[in-house]
């Protein structure tokens, strides 16, 4: 059990760093967004071509990376919204059980499905080095790779979550400590 919990802590640290990478991209996506508006007007004023599909596509590439890289971090911080009509009244131990079973039977299979069906799609994109159909656009195979990366990160964090909830359910960890309630950043 202790070895598993050590693994869980290593995974948590890893996910934390990936999450930081994801939220550092937030100001970048704001910057690129503002740039795309500004260059339309500045470009017209000075009569030069500033805007391009490079920046337009970079904007949604970064946006995609934010939530695809952030998913595991959000899982770790209990950020994915639940229907808690019943859940909110469960005891911490029962919550731990819901989370343990949910991780094993909902999260992991769904991520497995995403990887299984995503693989040939991403592989095809790499094989032909799929490009943007628009002039000056960015290579598609790079951003499509994140379709695989994201569920892999989720599975890794899911393993850590399962360990923690299992420990909580068995009483090795204090359930009320593991089942964190973080609501403050939701919409």
């Amino acid at each position: 059990m202790q070895a598993l919990l050590r693994l869980s802590r290593i995974i948590d640290t890893f996910t934390e760093w990936v999450g930081r990478l994801a939220y550092i991209l937030v100001p970048v996506v704001v910057g690129v967004g503002v740039w795309n508006v500004a260059n339309r007007y500045v470009g017209r004023a000075i009569g030069r071509t500033l805007g391009s599909n490079f920046y337009i596509e970079a904007q949604w590439y970064i946006f995609s990376m934010i939530f695809l890289l952030g998913a595991a971090y959000a899982l770790k911080h209990n950020e994915h919204v639940r229907v808690d009509v019943f859940y909110s009244n469960f005891s911490p131990k029962r919550k731990a059980l819901v989370n343990l079973l949910g991780t094993l039977f909902f999260l992991l299979p769904f991520c497995g499905l995403l990887i299984y069906f995503g693989w040939p799609y991403v592989e095809q994109s790499w094989r032909i080095r799929e490009n943007s159909p628009d002039p000056g656009g960015l290579p598609r195979y790079i951003i499509k790779t994140f379709l695989i990366v994201s569920p892999i990160l989720l599975i890794i964090q899911g393993i850590s979550e399962a360990i923690k909830y299992f420990a909580a359910f068995r009483g090795v960890l204090d359930p009320s400590q593991v089942v964190v309630e973080e609501k403050e950043t939701k919409l």
Partner: peptide, 24 residues
């Protein structure tokens, strides 16, 4: 020059080379 136009594909490629800012 600097004209902003919604046009995709090879036509966009050509217009871009003529100075148009193309967008899909």
């Amino acid at each position: 020059q600097g004209l902003k136009m919604r046009i995709p594909g090879l036509g966009a490629q050509v217009l871009k080379n003529l100075g148009v800012v193309t967008q899909t």
